[in-house]
Design a protein around this nucleic acid. Sequence first.
DNA 1: CGACGTGTTGATCTCTCTCAATTAGAGTGG
DNA 2: CCACTCTAATTGAGAGAGATCAACACGTCG
Lengths: 245, 245
Amino acid sequence: MIQTPCRQCRLRTLPLFLPHTAEEIALVQSLKRDELHLPGGHTLIDEGQTDAPLYTLLSGWAFRFKTLRDGRRQILNFLLAGDFIGVQQKMGDAAAHGVVTLTDSVFCVFQRDSLWQLHRQQPAMGFNITWLTAHEESLVDDTLLSVGRRTAEERVASLLIMLFKRAAALQADGGAQGVPFPLTQQHIADGLGLSLVHTNKTLRKLERRGLHRIEGGRLYLGDLQRLERLADLYGDGRQQPRPLI
Amino acid sequence: MIQTPCRQCRLRTLPLFLPHTAEEIALVQSLKRDELHLPGGHTLIDEGQTDAPLYTLLSGWAFRFKTLRDGRRQILNFLLAGDFIGVQQKMGDAAAHGVVTLTDSVFCVFQRDSLWQLHRQQPAMGFNITWLTAHEESLVDDTLLSVGRRTAEERVASLLIMLFKRAAALQADGGAQGVPFPLTQQHIADGLGLSLVHTNKTLRKLERRGLHRIEGGRLYLGDLQRLERLADLYGDGRQQPRPLI
DNA sequence: CGACGTGTTGATCTCTCTCAATTAGAGTGG
DNA sequence: CCACTCTAATTGAGAGAGATCAACACGTCG
């Protein structure tokens, strides 16, 4: 088990993340219990699990989801490097959603009371976590708007744009050569409240219009402007810097 | 303008809210800038507004929403007494959603850096706010599951149950005599991603089956068990105590 | 009393779902 | 090296849940 020291965390070098003091980093390091490597397609947290710790996604892709008894599944959002997992459940609560990996992933595992320790010992980090949590909610808000009020074409377009931008922000080249795209069409469907078949047809339609291309596990956007117009997405100054822990 | 002292806040007496120390309450009081009284149907925050302060809903009902350019509207969630408003936008950000009242409402207005002051001076409250924010996200998660994967009947049933439970928790009688229900069918439709007409037909269908009744601005549930089964809602230990600030 | 907001209902229409079948690629074992 | 199996993508056809269009009822209010 290779332990990455927080001080040398690859994520810290990205412009996306806030700088932190040595004390802050040392605190985070002291709370880190383990590093968990999972292959793609594996369960990190089961729906209803009661004892899930706090995680951070160090590398890879994953997603949060909920299901109905008969198996209908809704993906709540996709998780990329730097995202938090498990802030929701207070100690003792059942997880209200499951988490599954899309790719080989590495998670930092934190002890259960980390959230409290962080707040208590470094209020500035606590404040950032509140804000991060609120920001994650706003991602779900966006999806809810899509699923509730956009047509299939609009939904697919906006999802592609969102994922592209998030993934591009984690790359040095900013997505010039496309971004990794490990989702199957079933994941897209479950993320947008669509059926698999209709998702496929919609995707093909957009592709034939030259709006995007998915190939070899990578996503390339053809005409961002046209996609954004289709999705009714505002030019979008939303892409905020997200502090790491 | 009547200023309710936080120490005597009506909400504090409800079992729903956590106890707080005198220092905590004093701090909150010191950060409170104003009290805002709005009639029903009024805008508290415009979509895209950049300078919204932090609010707390002291009494009344409101909702958060987003719209597309052509006017399609999605209600993200309904706000009841005790809810926070505006944690999302960091200072300087544009509000990602609008907020409008459903009934005459009273808001506590807090200065912009309150969130930070709370974290800095009372980390325990900061921690609670993080958790509250995460909890609010889980409400949106629930709605997303509904809108993405439930049929119209299931959606309506689950919304009625959710609102009933939330409203009942704010009442002394726990909803035995029904709960206030200030939504129009258009609000329900916009909260569930349905059309107005179909919402009406679905509502009538459930009503004819004796599952609920809306009358004189109050909601009465006929058969909670049957409604929950219809909505595919789990018995639900979810109703957590929510700390007030 | 007319205008307006809200609720109700019937009649289409259509977007999306479901069912079914086919193709392609990756992996496995003989 | 080749059947065999599995998963993912693709496409057509028919069905259906929910949208849209249109009318009307009812209460409130200026």
